[in-house]
Write a protein that binds this DNA or RNA. Sequence first.
DNA 1: GATCAATATCGACGGTAATCGATGTTGCTC
DNA 2: GAGCAACATCGATTACCGTCGATATTGATC
Lengths: 108, 108
Amino acid sequence: MLDLAACCAPIRREPLDPADARVLAEAFRALADPVRLQLLNLIATSAAGEVCACDLVEPVGKSQPTVSHHLKVLREAGLVEADKRGTWVWYSVVPHRLDELRRVLARR
Amino acid sequence: MLDLAACCAPIRREPLDPADARVLAEAFRALADPVRLQLLNLIATSAAGEVCACDLVEPVGKSQPTVSHHLKVLREAGLVEADKRGTWVWYSVVPHRLDELRRVLARR
DNA sequence: GATCAATATCGACGGTAATCGATGTTGCTC
DNA sequence: GAGCAACATCGATTACCGTCGATATTGATC
């Protein structure tokens, strides 16, 4: 799992070495797809704070394997968490991960 | 040029329609490459607030065409501006573009 | 334990992006 | 205007990514 807290000061404030640039790019790459942004949005704006994966396929208009793939990318980027309860998997956002990305973009 | 201000409320706060998701994803895609993050960092942290393109090739360790390509991507994403002065081109960041991306990631 | 439903994984295909050498373009200088 | 330097574009190559059908896995139910 990529660790942003241990990595990157705001890029408008301090020098960024190549290794940290790779970690950061990997994090932003998770946000660089419209389907993943929609999934993240659906999960983040849900009233319960979590959404069953079964309710994420139809809204984004992609196949079940494709949605599963994108959820995996979001998971590996640390942006969402999966909680398996019986047959269903419930997804929720990891707020501090998005906060860390905000921090990296802060003004100098 | 993609327009974030006219597009996207914070994705943790309001629903995100597919068209806006595409615009947003395009913006984040510009940040999803280590070379571009390094270039953005070099420009943003420069004392003068702008950097000659000629001083951006060596630090990132890529060929001149590759650097030129990445600068174009950053330009088309609205994250940097280019100012041609004689033989040289000076690059500076567009602060409000990065601020808009921060806003999109804000908490609900 | 056989069946069914929800997810994940696999394999393959098509598109896109990163990279670089070669070449084009622009502007300076003598 | 010839030569040179900075930068952009082109063409080709390679690698990666999104997508989906098919299949495997897991867990619930009867």
